[in-house]
Amino acid sequence: MSAPLRDAAAGEPLLVADRISKSFGGVQALADVSFTIRRGEIYGLIGPNGAGKTSLFNVLTGIYAPEAGTFTFDGHALAGLKPNDVAERGIARTFQNIRLFANLSALENVMIGRHVRTRANVFGAIFRNASTRAEERAIETRARELLEYVGMSPQANTLAKHLAYGDQRRLEIARALATDPRLLALDEPAAGMNATETAALKGLLESIRRDGVTILLIEHDMKLVMSVCDRVLVLDYGRKIAEGPATTVQKDEKVIAAYLGGEVTLSLRRR
């Protein structure tokens, strides 16, 4: 993509999580989790299975309400917002178990992503006035640009469900980018990808960041996390056990203990 998605004043806090807690039944999924994501960084979120990573995502994006704690995004509290409001504020996400609109084409999937940034109402849709037509054209153009951006132009008319696994992951990212996010939250984007696809994903993440979108990344692929993330937060049993630059966190004893013995096991945890 030629122009950056959005200018970023790099380094300033974009998302501040303050003592977030959430439990399901008797299980404490998140306990007093606090962290700050700065503009323009790729922020990793790792931890063993069941550590609370996806729960954190769901609380952040409004699917669950936190029991305690607040998120502040770009200076505004996210408390009590519904998922669609959160998207409107500029946080877009992907899902660990891909949730594309399976029976719609790749292009239509991305076009739906533009929904929140477009205005046409029922009357516009029925009467097809000039502004609606212009908007429709803009939606399609933008969607095609984004498909190009993630390298999926040839599959624009393929139904999402017929796409290869790696393509589905990339399509989810394109769809999320279509909402013009300032924070892109990716839930295990490399899961199920082979080495080549993962390398391509790394390039994609870097160019998204270059274009001014901050990234929050949940990932099990430690190689990817360590090579792409500026800083990493480690969760275990819903608690923050470490935070900092990837290289530092990697050597943290608590992190190694949580992962039962270091990097050998780490790579085994890839699914």
Binding site: P83, F95, I112, H115, V122, A125, A176
Partner: peptide, 22 residues
């Protein structure tokens, strides 16, 4: 239209539709 696509998104996957700001 934008509206029709939003409906189809809801039909296909309501949670994903909400996450897309619908």
């Amino acid at each position: 239209s934008r509206i029709g696509r939003a409906w189809e998104a809801i039909r296909e996957d309501e949670i994903a539709a909400r996450a897309m700001g619908i």
